[in-house]
Every structure is written in structure tokens, then in C-alpha cells.
Design a protein around this nucleic acid. Sequence first.
DNA 1: CGCTTTTGACCCGCGC
DNA 2: GCGCGGGTCAAAAGCG
Length: 333
Amino acid sequence: MSGDPRDFYYHDPTYRYPNGHYDAPLLPFSSFTDFLQGPTTFDYNPLARAFDFSASSPEAFSSFNCGIPIYGEGVDEGFSSNGDDGCNNNSYQVNTVGNSSISSSSGEAGAEEDSSKGKKGEAGAEEDSGKGKKGAAQGEDGGETSSQKQDKSKKKVEKRPREPRFAFMTKSEVDHLEDGYRWRKYGQKAVKNSPYPRSYYRCTTQKCVVKKRVERSFQDPSVVITTYEGQHNHPLPSTLRGSVAGMLAHHHHSMMLSQPQPSILPPSFPTSEFMIQLPHSHFMNDNQVIDATATSASLYLPNSPSLHQQHQLHPDYGLLQDMLTSAFLKQEL
DNA sequence: CGCTTTTGACCCGCGC
DNA sequence: GCGCGGGTCAAAAGCG
């Protein structure tokens, strides 16, 4: 881990990496002590969940951030660059609410192309990706392996576009936040320039290809950066209960049924729902900070103090959604 | 016993 | 072509 200077840069939200990536903006939120009862959690699907649910864990986190990274238009490849350059090291400097400053490096590395490495194992699931080849390597059979490799290289399989990703930061003592879904960890890697590792999780539901990465910000160890990729194709596990599950499931459901503009990436996360509505340019625009407490939420626009607004928080995060939407629209004006 | 986590090896794209 | 770094695989270990 040496540091690449880039890691410490402030990334211009509008900057696009050569690969086409956008730097993602992050929206910091603060204190929902409400549910915060848990140290945990929440992370995942964004805000929505965050807002309410979480339930299970009892600790509290004082603030969380949420952001969307990317959508590339080109979906594509973008992310894959793992290389050193750009992608992974993106770091975002986010405004902070109160005094905590949050910044993260999320690397968005994304590199996942789906197919890449073959997936053999779980195979079942994805049909799609198909491409996979198995990890030949692992085996020792050289022959096949090599042939397989050739195959791959020769045919360029088109990689299927990567699922939209959604990242957000959460102040939490625990890395893995409860979000209502069941996940299985399938890998962990050291993060460049960070003492904290990044963990990779996959949704355990069959045929669901949603993945998520969890890592702790090296700049602010109290912050956990969670990146979701893909959309769940199933309801929340019934085991999770309660309102949480119910709400989430409900929400999720409706989202799936109503995806208006496919072209724009509708990530699976509730939050993304409203994010999608925002014009890119503005959305990427500077850092917006949202401060939410159990009873109210505020959106701070660093460059426009006057836009600061407060709203009552409802049990239903829909309100938050509205708040965010209107806030962004205002900013636009 | 079944599922999850751990963990080292491997794959792959990219820059040099 | 090589090395780097992110992401994934899968055998082994751990856990309830």
C-alpha cells in the first residue's frame, strides 16, 4: 500500500475518468439515532433502509453518508479499471456535518465484470453471466486450462454491462450492517493505501446476483463504506421481520414493478429511486450534506447556505425521498 | 450436518 | 510481456 497521491485528492464530481467513470458524489447524513440503535447497520440499500429499519442492532451511529457513484453511461467498462489509476482509488472528500469529516475512498473499483472470473461454483445462479469459465487455473490440468484460456482470450465475450452500483458511507462500529438480506462473504482483500480490508459479499438467495462490498474508510475509521451492485430479484427473507422486512419488501416490490426509465439505471436500492430523478450534472455537483435526526432531516448545500432546509422525518422514508428530490431540484434553480 | 467465513491462489484488465 | 491491483474461486476451517 503505498500511497498513490490520487488517493488523497479531492475528486471533482464532474470529472470523468478515462474509462468513463464518474466520480461519485456522496451525500452525508447524520444521526438517525433512531434506529440507530444499532451499531450497525444499515447499509445497504440505502437510505431507505437506513431510515428505518435496521433494526437489529443496537448501537448507534451518528451519521451516515450516502452517495451514488456511478452510472456510467457507458456502462461499461467503466469500472473495470482497476488499475491503478483511477478507479480504485477514488477518494471522495465529503463535507461533513458537524464536525466529522467523512471521506472515503471508495474505491470503486468495480471491477467486476461479470464474467470474469468464472464462476463456477455458484454457478447455478447465474445464467447469465455466463461467461464464466471456470477457474481453470485452479485445477491443474494444464491442458484444459490453457485451452480454455485461449478461448477466452480469443473470443471476446461481450461482457454484460455491469450492474449499477450504489455506494454510501455509514458511521458505524461494525463493518457489516444489517440490511434485511442474507449475505455470504466470498472474499476479502487488502485495500491499497488503507489498513482496513475490503470484504465482498454475495446475496445468498438463489439466482440473485446482488453483491456488495464493505470497507472502512482509512481516513475516518469510524466510517464504513458500503457499495451495492445489482438489484435483488426477490423479496426480503421472511425471517427478517417486522416492519423492516415488510417495509423493505414492499418498497422493493413497488420499485421493481415500476421502473420507469430503464435506461437510467435503476439500481435496486430504494434510494436510488430518487437519485435517478436527479439530473446528473446537478447531482454530481458539489457536496450536499444531509443531516437527519430522529425527528427531522436537513439538507445542506455547502455552496448555498440558503438552501438549507429542514423536514420532518416520517417513518416512511418516502418523505426523505421527497425531501431529497426537492432539495436537488432547488439546487438546480 | 449445513451454512458461513477464512484465506491463498488465480483471473483479468490496465499501465508501463 | 510484466507487474500491479481489484475481484473471485474454492478448499479448509469454523460455527451453531
